[in-house]
Computed example of a mutant assay.
Amino acid sequence: MTQYLFPPRAVPTLPIRGQSVRFPVNRIFCVGRNYHAHAVEMGRPVDKSVERPFYFTKSPQTLVDSGATVPYPAGTQNYHYEMELVLAVGKPGFQVSAEQAHGIIYGYAAGLDMTRRDLQLAARDKGRPWDLGKDIEQGAICSEIVPMEGVVIEKGAITLEVNGQTKQSSDLDKLIWNIREIIADLSQFYHLEPGDLIYTGTPEGVGPVVPGDRLVGRVEGVGEVTLTVGAAA
């Protein structure tokens, strides 16, 4: 039996709708600037004809179940929400074609990619990694996984409310790179594995939150994710 210097942290997991077992999370990939209107509001328009998707990661340990209250994080004065459709991988896949991408899909969830926007933009403008802006403790919030094996979602409303006011409202058919294209491209670089999550990008309307704010995000046909922002850590 393996002995450890100190107890290892438990594997992050998410609930699965209609099941008593939980979904063990392996890695969290995120697609950057995957809605045209959001890319424009960030000052970086995307030309799909000459560009390919780009990605960043969040540590699995940043994952938090929907419904949580999380502290306003240290080191930022501009903490932003980003509402996203989350894809859950259920089968291994490497160099998967777009036509076969559906074969590795287990299901979907609604998620929030929380961002230290001031730190992200400062790093971006200096050509540095985004880790401090994106890989935030308790900064990846996710709903239950909805099993939809082999289903490719191509459209559906995606919205976010802050304290009852709509801040983001778009449709999944506005993704620059759709679900099939994301899987095909990402799998050129990684052996995708069961338990991987892919945050597929956020629409326009991102903005700041303050302690006490309550966020409610919805993805049509998938579900709802909620978050309360607590006092500063």
Rank of each mutant, 00 (worst) to 15 (best):
E51R: 11
E51V: 04
E51L: 09
R52C: 14
R52I: 15
R52K: 15
P53T: 10
Y55I: 06
F56Q: 09
F56P: 09
F56G: 13
T57K: 08
T57E: 06
T57M: 15
T57P: 00
K58N: 02
K58H: 00
K58S: 00
K58C: 03
K58M: 03
K58I: 02
S59N: 12
S59R: 09
P60V: 12
P60F: 10
T62P: 05
T62G: 09
L63Y: 03
L63V: 10
L63W: 01
V64D: 12
D65M: 13
S66C: 11
G67L: 02
G67F: 00
G67S: 01
A68T: 02
A68W: 00
V70D: 05
V70R: 06
V70E: 00
P71G: 12
P71Q: 01
P71K: 03
P71A: 10
P71R: 04
Y72W: 01
Y72L: 07
Y72R: 03
P73A: 13
A74W: 06
A74Q: 14
A74K: 14
A74S: 14
G75H: 13
G75A: 13
G75K: 12
G75V: 03
T76A: 07
T76Q: 07
Q77T: 14
N78G: 05
N78H: 11
N78S: 15
Y79R: 01
Y79T: 00
H80Y: 13
H80F: 12
Y81S: 09
Y81F: 15
Y81Q: 03
Y81R: 10
E82C: 13
M83W: 02
M83T: 11
M83E: 11
E84D: 04
E84L: 07
E84W: 03
L85G: 09
V86N: 02
V86I: 15
V86R: 01
L87Y: 07
L87H: 05
L87W: 08
A88D: 01
V89K: 08
V89Q: 08
V89H: 08
V89N: 10
V89T: 06
V89W: 08
G90V: 07
G90S: 08
G90M: 07
K91I: 05
K91E: 14
P92W: 01
P92Y: 02
P92L: 03
G93E: 06
F94K: 14
V96Q: 07
S97L: 06
S97R: 09
A98N: 04
A98H: 00
E99G: 10
E99V: 08
E99M: 10
E99N: 12
A101R: 03
H102F: 13
H102L: 01
G103P: 01
G103D: 11
G103Q: 15
I104V: 11
I104L: 14
I104M: 14
I105W: 07
I105Y: 04
Y106M: 13
Y106F: 15
G107Q: 05
G107K: 05
Y108N: 08
Y108E: 10
A109Y: 02
A109L: 10
A110Q: 02
A110K: 00
A110F: 06
G111T: 04
L112P: 07
L112Y: 09
L112H: 06
D113P: 01
D113M: 03
D113Q: 03
D113W: 01
M114K: 00
M114T: 01
T115L: 14
T115M: 11
R116L: 14
R116F: 08
R116G: 02
R116P: 05
R116W: 06
R117A: 08
R117N: 06
